[in-house]
């Protein structure tokens, strides 16, 4: 049996999750340097699924982590190797910068073709963009089926059986092995870095490809290839409603409950 090549799409993001732990400035902006850079959380859930699939294939698979971003994103790719990926590729070039999801997926699809992967995994969405576009757009660019919101992926013969989350429940679908699967946070967590792998590949070299290496249409990369344009961002500075301020004393809370009852806010 020939080795199955699995591509794993990841993004390095700024960790903004514990939103109560830090606060934006008065103008609504955030000091990005104050927050750590991590692998997008749902991409790790996707990595775990690729590792499980490789086990089901008796190790007969090669997992190649692919990312697009600045040079420092190589750290995130190296972490993927420590956690079990076999190889990693970083697309890094000023020509691909400023890409929206369409231009991003174009570059990623070219990299996947160059790697020669037939099965692709990605996180459902990133915590900085939160669009969930890139997975489906890569699948469309490659002309293969997609299965989004996956929770469990099992190999059955030469098909995949995938349990996926719906708005009102779940469904189990059967898909060919040539497909793109996005994994959500309801799937299993990723295993930790393996100490031996860390030692062995502490300085693992991460391949870096430029836009030219991808051999694509240059007008479809980066800002030039992005049909969407951010017009402006406005800080949400809310004028205070001037609400009644109370203490946690029993008296204050009793007064509040009485008021809510008298104005029929509560029955």
């Amino acid at each position: 049996m020939t080795k199955i090549k699995i591509a794993l799409l990841i993004k390095q993001v700024i960790d903004t999750r514990i939103s109560e732990g830090w606060a934006p400035g008065a103008d609504g902006t955030v000091d990005r340097n104050a927050l750590p850079a991590i692998i997008n959380p749902e991409d790790l859930h996707a990595l775990e699924q690729t590792l499980r699939l490789k086990e089901q294939l008796g190790g007969n698979a090669e997992i190649v982590a692919i990312s697009m971003g600045p040079q420092r994103a190589a750290e995130a790719l190296r972490e993927c190797i420590w956690r079990g990926a076999d190889d990693a590729v970083l697309i890094s070039d000023r020509k691909v910068a400023g890409a929206d999801t369409l231009a991003t997926s174009y570059a990623l699809a070219l990299a996947i073709k160059k790697v020669g992967a037939s099965l692709i995994f990605a996180g459902r969405q990133t915590i900085d963009g939160d669009t969930a576009h890139v997975g489906p757009q890569v699948a469309q660019a490659l002309g293969i089926p997609q299965i989004t919101y996956a929770e469990e992926v099992a190999l059955e013969g030469d098909s995949l059986v995938v349990k996926r989350r719906l708005d009102d429940g779940f469904e189990v679908v059967k898909s060919p092995l040539k497909a793109l699967i996005t994994v959500g946070s309801s799937a299993a967590k990723c295993r930790f870095c393996n100490a031996k792998r860390m030692l062995r590949s502490r300085k693992a070299e991460i391949k870096t490809w430029s836009a030219a290496d991808l051999d694509g249409d240059l007008s479809r990369f980066g800002l030039a290839g992005s049909p969407t344009q951010v017009l402006y961002s406005e800080p949400i500075v809310t004028e205070s409603k001037g609400g009644v301020v109370l203490t946690s004393s029993i008296e204050d809370i009793a007064t509040l409950v009485a008021e809510l009852r008298s104005n029929h806010t509560i029955e």
């Binding site: 700024i14 903004t16 934006p24 609504g28 902006t29 955030v30 990005r32 915590i127 900085d128 963009g129 939160d130 969407t228 344009q229 951010v230 017009l231 402006y232 961002s233 406005e234 800080p235 949400i236």
Partner: peptide
């Protein structure tokens, strides 16, 4: 999401 901002996209 990164910051309390509303972004307008066209």
């Amino acid at each position: 999401f990164v910051g309390n901002q509303l972004t307008t996209i066209v």
